[in-house]
Amino acid sequence: MTTGCGCGGGSGGGGCSSSAKEPEVVVAVEPQLIASSEQEWPIVSVNGVQITPEAMAQELQYHPAESREEAVFLAARALVIRELLQQRIRELGVLLEVGAGENEEEAATRLLLEREVKVPDCDEATCVRYFESNRGRFHSAPLLAVRHILLECAPDDAEARHVAHSQAEVLLLSLQESPASFADLALKYSACPSKAQGGSLGQVSKGQTVPELERQLFTLAPGLASKPLESRYGWHVICVDQRIEGQPLPYEAVATAIRTQLQQGVWQKALVQYLQTLIGAADVRGIALQGADSPLVQ
């Protein structure tokens, strides 16, 4: 795929590329640390084993948050759960079988959860009911044949963004009067390699553009967009030459995905309940946990 603006236009298809992320599961907790205002780190212990300030300082980097207090809570909670799991592993004498890509701690945790978190399989009837209740979610992705003119500017340059937006509006007015000039204007003004093909990005489906552009792009009807669209790369003057709507998918095409999704949901609930059980049975001091999640859930 051609680099540059990131839209992949130079390769004859696809939009500004990005990778999509699956949504994370969040379990409600109360972020309350029991610590005085004079303490830089709370004093937290699990069944008499203290979570050291050094461990919390190291863990902190994995828990970005809006405030330091929240980040410290998240780091301390993760370390409490890790210590609880390690203590349970030692209590049960879990024998290690290290798999590919695992270290010993990861292997021991996996084997512990396989042993103690039992989840029933989702049966066919449950999957079919879910499909029937959510038919609107199961369609093939729409396809758009798109041309664009990219007026490039840095995402943090407010002045350049203002200038680029003004220029995009001028080009849009010109195209409304003379639609046939799109290729000439793309060649002259666009910062995307697709300018050599008259601005054509080919057929674009979901997941092929950066999210902020995709959200706008797939709401458009065929024709010249009525206003410029903004992305991290700048401002885009867009023309949708063709829009092919997605088609409903039969159950057979999505059965495996439905079963995996439902099974993952059941597993996540069972795991949270297991972690809550460990917390409830332990002597955890210095942090108030009414529920628990962990990186294992994500």
Rank of each mutant, 00 (worst) to 15 (best):
K206H: 14
K206I: 15
K206Q: 15
K206A: 14
G207E: 08
G207D: 08
G207A: 04
G207Q: 00
Q208R: 13
Q208P: 10
Q208A: 09
Q208K: 09
T209K: 01
T209Q: 14
V210N: 06
V210Q: 10
V210K: 06
V210C: 12
V210Y: 00
P211C: 02
E212G: 01
E212D: 10
E212K: 01
E212I: 06
E212Q: 12
L213M: 14
L213E: 12
L213Y: 13
L213Q: 11
R215V: 06
Q216A: 14
Q216E: 15
Q216T: 11
L217I: 05
L217M: 01
L217Q: 08
L217R: 01
L217N: 04
L217V: 00
F218P: 09
F218N: 08
F218H: 08
T219K: 11
T219A: 10
T219D: 07
L220M: 07
L220R: 08
L220D: 07
A221R: 14
A221S: 15
P222G: 04
P222T: 00
P222I: 01
P222R: 04
P222C: 02
G223M: 01
G223A: 02
G223I: 01
G223D: 05
L224S: 10
A225V: 08
A225P: 13
A225E: 11
A225F: 12
A225R: 06
A225C: 13
A225L: 09
S226A: 11
S226Q: 11
S226C: 02
K227A: 15
K227N: 08
K227C: 10
P228K: 00
P228V: 04
P228Y: 00
P228C: 02
L229C: 12
L229A: 13
L229H: 12
L229K: 12
L229V: 14
E230W: 00
E230P: 00
E230Q: 11
E230M: 05
S231T: 07
S231W: 07
S231A: 15
R232Y: 05
R232A: 14
Y233E: 15
Y233C: 10
G234E: 13
G234V: 07
G234R: 03
G234A: 11
G234L: 13
G234D: 09
W235E: 06
W235L: 03
H236F: 00
H236A: 02
H236W: 01
V237H: 01
I238N: 04
I238T: 03
I238P: 04
I238A: 03
C239T: 06
C239I: 00
V240H: 02
V240R: 01
D241I: 00
D241A: 03
D241H: 02
D241W: 03
Q242R: 15
Q242K: 15
Q242L: 14
Q242G: 01
Q242E: 15
Q242I: 08
R243S: 09
R243N: 03
R243C: 06
I244G: 00
I244E: 14
I244R: 15
E245Y: 08
